[in-house]
């Protein structure tokens, strides 16, 4: 084996092996080609969308003038914003509880909190559907004016988002130097003052990253929304689903591109914030 190495190439220098590079290129091509084509063809003039005929923004104009599509997008954004606020608060409370206290059955509690993350989405979707119908919440919210008729979906989204926020915030809190808290209390600050002026500022990057995560999860969710939405309350993914079932159209490409841009920006931001800055440790 060693005989085949090029000069300057160590036996463990796999990164410079041609076969690995080719494999990398092939896998990334398969991963990205469909998405890039989708984005590219959202600017295509051809209606059938297979052959490139020329650049246009007509598809975006058409998507923009499609009232039901815009309504679905608005619904999705409203749900995502409200669900994010609730999920961030609940997630932060959970994270603080786990980080600060020892209590009986903590392991079991932690397991329960992780359940919404691990159980199949479809199970959670049908369980919530059953619950909303039997508790009368479905009936109650369906007749409410917009945006209150989105209530069910918001409740559902908060439920699957906040455990994720808890995980993100808790991993941020692990790096907290508890002496800061003790110093604050020694200097006469109350529990509340210490919380607001010491702990919250430290948690902030985790809170923002968690909130962005919740926002993307909510905006992207199809399965749970599919089961918990009423006939009048359509979200963007549910709308796209019904369009996709009818066939491929450049209008969907345009709408999808907008959603891709929103999520990618939110994700890259979240990742930047989540990377722990080494300097402020300890």
């Amino acid at each position: 084996m060693a005989a085949r190495l090029k000069p300057g190439q160590g036996p463990l220098d796999y990164g410079s092996r041609l076969w690995l590079r080719l494999l990398f290129a092939a896998i990334f091509f398969v991963l990205y080609a469909p998405i890039i084509t989708l984005v590219a063809f959202s600017f295509n003039t051809d209606k059938r969308g297979v052959v490139w005929r020329g650049f246009t923004l007509d598809n975006y104009a058409r998507a923009w003038n499609n009232a039901s599509l815009i309504e679905a997008l608005t619904n999705s954004l409203v749900i995502a914003v409200i669900a994010t606020v609730f999920a961030t608060v609940l997630g932060a409370l959970t994270a603080l509880l786990m980080w600060r206290f020892r209590f009986p059955l903590k392991g079991a509690y932690e397991g329960f909190m992780a359940l919404p993350i691990v159980i199949p989405e479809i199970c959670m979707g049908v369980a919530l559907l059953l619950f909303f119908v039997n508790s009368g919440m479905m009936e109650f919210f369906v007749h409410m004016p917009w945006p209150l008729n989105l209530g069910n979906i918001i409740f559902a989204h908060v439920t699957f988002c906040f455990p994720f926020v808890a995980v993100v915030v808790r991993s941020r809190l692990v790096g907290f130097n508890r002496q800061l808290e003790e110093a604050s209390k020694d200097l006469g600050a109350s529990e509340w003052q210490t919380f607001w002026s010491i702990i919250v500022p430290f948690m902030k990057p985790g809170l923002i990253a968690g909130a962005l995560l919740a926002f993307t999860l909510s905006l992207d969710d199809f399965v749970i929304t599919f089961f918990t939405s009423g006939p009048e309350t359509v979200t963007f993914p549910v709308k796209v689903y019904s369009l996709v079932r009818r066939g491929v159209s450049p209008e969907i490409n345009a709408a999808s591109t907008v959603l891709i841009v929103i999520t990618v920006v939110a994700t890259v931001l979240a990742m930047k914030l989540q990377a722990p800055p080494r300097a402020d440790k300890g």
Partner: peptide, 25 residues
């Protein structure tokens, strides 16, 4: 980041992108 990014793109959109690649036309 390149590996994880597609994961954050809506599942439905990625599936739709595959349909456009694989369908008969």
């Amino acid at each position: 980041l390149l590996v994880v990014l597609p994961f954050w793109i809506n599942l439905l959109i990625r599936t739709y992108a595959l349909i456009a690649v694989f369908r008969t036309q």
